[in-house]
Amino acid sequence: MEKKETIQDELREVAPSLLHQQQSTFQVPTGYFEQFPHKLIAAANKEEKNSPTIFFRSPRWTVFAAAAVTISILFFSLYYFRNPLNEEASAVDQWAKQEISKLSEEHVSDYIDNTNAFLQTDTAEKIESNDLAVLIQDIPHAEIKRLLNDLPATEMP
């Protein structure tokens, strides 16, 4: 603590009527300061017993990990909000529409007819059969037989 004289000298200069007025005014309940330390120890021990969670609290790294995940989600959400995934697809779609609009109706009609004609040719059938043979090579015969039995007669190849 600072010397009393220093404090009084300072007051004498600044506010002389406050000199030597540091008497106590408020009252404290009888025995308060004698009992306080014991009550406090009891309260501190009680608080310690009631807070075992300290052992189960998540370690600090999990907090950082959670923060990193949250930031990543926010970052990617913001990125895709600004650059949506279907932007590229819609650009292709737009381009295709533009290109098709340049074609005459006759060209488009010819293309559809030729495609249908191709699908009905032997070549198309052969490709299909070959592909099918590769696809079903690992399926047991019993399974294929069961599938054929289950199919309605109209769908039989």
């Binding site: 603590m1 600072e2 009393k4 404090i7 007051l11 540091q22």
Partner: peptide, 8 residues
């Protein structure tokens, strides 16, 4: 702190 507790 200064007046009552005389803290430097």
């Amino acid at each position: 702190l200064r007046y009552y507790q005389e803290m430097p």
